[in-house]
Write a protein that binds this DNA or RNA. Structure first.
Lengths: 148, 148
DNA sequence: CTGAATGGTCAACCCGCTTGACCATAAACC
DNA sequence: GGTTTATGGTCAAGCGGGTTGACCATTCAG
């Protein structure tokens, strides 16, 4: 495999990633959730299970805790999450999704499913599963950083 | 395929895209090209064949022409490209890569190849080619936008 | 030849993120 | 127990890359 092939593969991957992000974002907006940026989705995915502290969120997103704090301010102000006292650590505050936050998360899932369905139309369901499997194996575990 | 599966696939794709971008960027820096951001790579890829005007570059990157103009200023100042009069249109100026710009592009290709090689170690060469083929089919043709 | 359209730049502003300082609570240590 | 160090969080100021708006030069359409 030549270097130029690797570049072509990279370009395709990044193009798909960019378009996917756009489609999910558009889909979320179309379902009535406004004032959000794609980065918020990654925050939601970290908050979803059991909530998280600002510091944990910052690590997940790969930004400073100040930036994460601002982001939390924003989604709290817009009604997607709320801050609660942290059980067992009076310094920390647990950020959890509100019902509206959950609804938005479900909307994002629907939008993602729509985008993936388009791929299945082109590749077939089997290839999409193969894609999933392959990507899952090479996906890193670290913080989710903006692609560029 | 369930919505949550689509979300898992999306998350994996975006994680891989983010890591790939980081690795290419790191590799370029390691080869001695500093002061560049990932976005510059996408500009280079558009300039590479025969150069481009600021407006074409703006369309390719999905930003305003003012932003593209600033970006060109930067890579010109750092010696990666130069502005030339456009043959056949006195308003336009053709932005072309310098030799250093070409060297940087080759460095990026090497870094991409390194990253892809890691995938091949996990998936095998055949699956990587399959990945390439599948991504190539679903990749959009439009402007390359930052993932988020 | 005139008026609209296009390529490009300059200027002001916005917004998200960073660095640096600081307070409150927790954990570590004598 | 009391002091020191580390950790969670916020406030404030500044930076950097982007946007909008205005403008000039050249080209194209009538």
């Amino acid at each position: 495999m030549q270097n130029s092939d690797a570049m072509a593969l990279s370009a395709a991957l990044l193009a798909v990633a960019g378009e996917l992000t756009q489609r999910i974002h558009d889909g979320v907006v179309a379902r009535g959730f406004e004032g959000l940026r794609p980065a918020h989705g990654f925050a939601f995915s970290r908050l979803a299970p059991d909530g998280a502290t600002v510091t944990e969120l910052a690590a997940h997103l790969g930004v400073t805790k100040q930036a994460a704090s601002q982001l939390v301010d924003e989604i709290v102000r817009k009604g997607y999450a709320e801050r609660r006292p942290h059980p067992g650590d009076a310094r920390a505050r647990l950020v959890v999704l509100t019902e509206r936050g959950w609804a938005c998360t479900r909307a994002a899932e629907e939008a993602a499913a729509e985008a993936v369905r388009r791929w299945a139309e082109v590749l077939g369901e089997g290839e999409v599963r193969a894609l999933w499997g392959n990507l899952g194996q090479i996906a890193p575990g670290g913080p989710i950083r903006p692609a560029w």
